[in-house]
C-alpha cells in the first residue's frame, strides 16, 4: 500500500483537506474519507451517473476521478446544491413533479441537471434527454425527471426575468 497523499481542495465552497491513498477514487474519498455520502455508487465504472459531481464546474462521474486529482480543484456534490436559504429550483421541481421513486439516482440527476441549466438555461426536451443519458434511473421511466428539469428551467427563467 502506497503512502497516503495530502490533498487540499474545495468541496461545496469550503476549503477542505484530506488524506487518501493514490488508488482511491474521488467517489470513495467523498463517501468514506470526507463523509459526504450523497454521491452514490451504482456501477463504479462511469455508466450509471449516480456519483455525478461538478469538478471545476464540469460534470464528471466521481468514480472515474482519483481523489488525488482534486488537489486545487473545486468540487460540488449534491450536498452543495441547496443553500441555507432553501432548495435549488431543480430540487424543488423534483419534489413537486414526483421525479423520484427510490431516490438513489436522484443526487446524480440533480447535479447533472444543474450542470446543464448552468450553461443552457432553456434546453429542449430532446436536449435534456441527451444530456441526462449518462444517468440511469430504473424506477421512473424518466418521464417525470424530464418534466421536472423542464419545469425548473422555466421557473429559473421566470425568476431571472423579474
Amino acid at each position: 500500500m502506497a503512502d497516503k497523499v495530502h490533498v487540499r481542495t474545495t468541496i461545496n465552497g469550503e476549503a477542505t483537506e484530506f488524506l487518501c491513498e493514490p488508488r482511491q477514487s474521488l467517489l470513495e474519498v467523498l463517501r468514506d474519507v470526507v463523509g459526504l455520502t450523497g454521491s452514490k455508487e451504482g456501477c463504479n465504472d462511469g455508466n450509471c451517473g449516480a456519483c455525478t459531481v461538478l469538478f471545476n464546474g464540469r460534470m464528471v462521474t466521481s468514480c472515474l476521478v482519483l481523489g488525488v486529482e482534486a488537489e486545487g480543484k473545486n468540487v460540488t456534490t449534491i450536498e452543495g446544491i441547496a443553500t441555507p436559504a432553501g432548495l435549488h429550483p431543480i430540487q424543488q421541481a423534483f419534489l413537486e413533479n414526483a421525479a423520484l421513486q427510490c431516490g438513489i439516482c436522484t443526487p446524480g440527476f440533480i447535479v447533472a441537471a444543474k450542470a446543464l441549466l448552468d450553461r443552457e438555461p432553456n434546453p429542449s426536451e430532446q436536449r435534456i434527454r441527451l444530456w441526462l443519458a449518462g444517468n440511469l434511473c430504473r424506477c421512473t421511466g424518466y418521464d417525470k425527471i424530464i418534466r421536472a428539469v423542464m419545469d425548473a428551467s422555466k421557473k429559473m427563467q421566470e425568476v431571472k426575468a423579474r
Binding site: R31, L36, T37, G38, S39, K40, E41, T77, I78, E79, I81, A82, L87, Q91, F94, L95, L100, G103, I104, T106, P107, I110
Partner: peptide, 15 residues
Amino acid sequence: DGLDKVIGRAKYAAD
C-alpha cells in the same frame, strides 16, 4: 421523505 432524497441526506445501505 422527498427532501432528504433531493439533498443527498437520505441514508442508503452503503452509507
